[in-house]
Amino acid sequence: MSDAVLKAADVSFAYGEQAVFAGLSLGVRAGRLVALVGPNGSGKSTLLRVLAGLARPGSGRVEAATRPALVVCGQTPPPDVTPRELAAYALSARRAAWVWRTQPQDESAISQALQRCGLAGYAQTPVSLLSAGEVQRAWIACALVVNARILLVDEPTAHLDLRFAVEVLELLRELTANGVAVVAALHDLTMAARFAHDVALLAGGRLSCGPPEEILEARALSEAFGVRVTTHRHPELGHVVCLPG
């Protein structure tokens, strides 16, 4: 925990009287992909907002080495916006309001970010003509362009078919190779086991965090999700595979 770039200590959050979680602690080190899993309504998105500094926790502390970027996927940008414009907007949020022009050094940052997200060929294509996976990657490019070292992604695979989901998760995994710390809220437990270094299971207001094979354990999952879950081993890759029933 000591070398964590993003630390939450004893954090609690409530919407009015309704407590979402309490006493959560989490540490994310640079170069790690943490999959945040848990049932609907368990507070995954809220926890990401708290970690990003966008929601103030009721108690406890969040410390980040650098300003985290929060990417909420699954949103549709206005249809005429291009990935390049989207990335430029992300940069503009960190500039003075009266500077309208994208600076030359920003141009190269945008090109690089789009390149890394595999969008170089579609930089000038309106998002209405992009696939869901490409739009998702365009959102992630926005986090890259501001050179975020801590990246929080809410449901990066929402609405994506298997191929695009794999593409996006591979991209996130690649980013960690460059020292970025990533926390991604995911629904697919097997995908989490396949791609994440660590898994954080948020259920019933409590968070348990550790390697996938420790956290993704049949009894804990069955309890968390309220259905019977069995876990297996992938015959070739060896990671955990979670199945209902």
Binding site: R67, V72, Q75, P78, Y89, A93, R94, A97, W98
Partner: peptide, 22 residues
């Protein structure tokens, strides 16, 4: 015209704008 940037970001949706640091 000083709010052009804000308006452009809000147009993306408030959670996206907040994620970008607005």
């Amino acid at each position: 015209f000083l709010l052009v940037r804000d308006v452009n970001l809000l147009r993306l949706g408030s959670s996206a704008a907040a994620g970008f640091g607005l």
